[in-house]
Each structure stands twice: as C-alpha cells, then as structure tokens.
C-alpha cells in the first residue's frame, strides 16, 4: 500500500466517523443534513483512494465513475432534505 493511499484512506474513514457522530448527536435538521454530506465526502474519498495507482499512473476509472454517481445522488438527496426541512420550519401544512 502506498503512503498516499493510507493517508487519504484514513482521512476518508475519519470524515465518515465525524459525519456519523454529527448525524447521531445533532438535533437541528440543518446540522444533520450537513453531517450526512460530511459522511458522504468521507466515503467518496475512500473511493478516490481505491482508484489511485501511484504518481504518473492512470487512475482506475471505475471507482471514479461511481463517485460521480454518488455525488449526483448526494446532491439530489440533500435538495430533498432541505426542501422538507424548510417546509417543516415554515410550519406550512394544509
């Protein structure tokens, strides 16, 4: 394993854990949505580490394609969560 892989991999795991802790401990909806995104960033970083093959080498394209899909999903999920949180805060219901 390359040292870069270890550093990036551990950072990814660390972000995942920080995000997880945030989702479980925070009460505010906005903080929890942000924490999920931190969590997701950790997972994506792990994917990027998996794709890395060393300096000057072409990265493995499959994990990168997966990260792109993952980011698209995360963006839409965040949008839905924010919309719901806003509706809740406005107290607007029929």
């Amino acid at each position: 394993m390359l040292p870069q892989e270890i550093i990036f991999g551990l950072t990814g795991v660390g972000l995942f854990v920080i995000g997880l802790r945030g989702v479980m401990l925070h009460v505010s909806a906005l903080a929890r949505i942000l924490a999920i995104n931190v969590c997701g960033a950790g997972v994506f970083l792990v994917f990027v580490t998996v794709a890395y093959r060393g300096l000057g080498e072409r990265p493995d394209p499959v994990p990168l394609a997966l990260v792109l899909t993952g980011i698209v999903v995360a963006v839409s999920a965040t949008a839905l969560a924010l919309a719901l949180a806003r509706r809740l805060q406005e107290g607007g219901d029929e």
Partner: peptide, 24 residues
C-alpha cells in the same frame, strides 16, 4: 413531514454505510 425528514436522514446514513462497503 417530520417523519419523512427523519426517514430520509436515517436512510441516507444507511446507504452511505452500504456505499462504503461497496468501495471496500
């Protein structure tokens, strides 16, 4: 609405864990 937001948060956390497993 409150239940749906919680469902979403919890569900996203579940899929993140699943995705981390896929990466491994």
């Amino acid at each position: 609405l409150r239940a749906a937001l919680r469902y979403l948060t919890v569900g996203l956390l579940g899929s993140m864990a699943f995705l981390a497993g896929v990466a491994l």
